[in-house]
């Protein structure tokens, strides 16, 4: 049995003055070392969920367990040491005047000794490959670079979990790639458990598991393979399906003898090659 790091039970949350619950009876677990993607269209409740996980909001009903701590007003500051967040807008989370100051910000808050800070800032920036930009000011960085600095700011605090709250949605394709590559490497090195909240299905396809949210409720949960099998159902929810899934579906409809759906282009090419040699 894998170690459970996060556990949500019947979490429900309503904003003041709204009729509908923004998050409605959501339960799920996250295991250590896993990459979980939470997808849903804008307004599906996924960003609210992110805020609940970090104690920026508290559920009206239900419970959230991080490690062995139940998230509450008393434990929130300890929970935040375990959960790092990267937000959507790269500019609005850059606190420091330079890259290194920004990475150090969280460490200063925790009262880490200065020599220790220097080392941890260096290490964190090495991991996101931004170590050559120590004294750079934020307005000279690209969106992708700023987000990588934000990730370094999280890494420096050595949390167990990183939550990416639509962290790539304001970036250009190159920036998105940079950020996702960074996250993938961190996950592979088993440094972090990743929860990425997104509407980018290409990003979700890289996760181990996907949760689909719709109108605040948990609509489906499964591996990317299982989720993308839903095909048109996802489109109906305002989402999209990855290119290779689309193509494989279209090929099957045209009578090409393919078994099942294809999550990556490589798989599809491989199957087509196999098919070709068989003919």
């Amino acid at each position: 049995m894998e170690e459970k790091l996060v556990s949500l039970k019947d979490v429900t949350f309503k904003y003041d003055g709204q009729d509908r619950n923004a998050v409605d009876g959501v339960s799920f677990d996250v295991s250590k070392g896993e990459w979980l993607a939470i997808v849903g269209h804008n307004g599906s409740g996924k960003s609210t969920l992110a805020k609940l996980l970090n104690g920026l909001q508290f559920p009206g009903f239900g419970s959230i367990l991080i490690g062995d701590m139940e998230l509450s007003e008393e434990t929130v500051w300890d929970v935040r040491k375990k959960v790092g967040m990267v937000f959507q807008n790269p500019d609005n989370q850059f606190v420091g005047t330079t890259v290194q100051d920004d990475v150090a910000f969280g460490l200063e808050n925790l009262g880490v000794q200065q020599q220790m800070m220097v080392k941890r800032v260096q290490d964190a920036l090495n991991k996101v490959k931004m170590n050559e930009f120590l004294d750079q000011e934020p307005h000279h960085l690209s969106g992708g670079q700023k987000q990588r600095v934000a990730i370094a700011g999280v890494l420096a605090l050595q949390p167990d979990i990183i939550i990416l709250d639509e962290a790539t949605s304001m970036l250009d394709p190159r920036g998105r790639e940079e950020v996702l590559d960074t996250v993938r490497e961190l996950k592979e090195e088993k440094i972090l458990t990743v929860i990425s909240i997104t509407h980018d299905l290409e990003e979700a396809a890289k996760a181990d598991r996907i949760i689909v949210l719709n109108q605040g409720r948990l609509y489906r949960e499964g591996t990317p393979d299982e989720i993308f099998h839903l095909e048109d159902e996802l489109v109906g929810l305002g989402l999209d399906i990855p290119f290779s899934v689309k193509l494989s579906k279209s090929l099957r409809e045209k009578g090409v003898d393919l078994a099942g759906s294809h999550l990556t282009e490589e798989e599809l090419v491989k199957d087509l090659c196999a098919l070709n040699s068989r003919i």
């Binding site: 193509l247 090929l251 409809e253 045209k254 090409v256 070709n276 003919i279």
Partner: peptide, 12 residues
Amino acid sequence: VEDLAGEVKRVM
């Protein structure tokens, strides 16, 4: 995607 699927089929 439609066009591509058709072409892949034809080419194969």
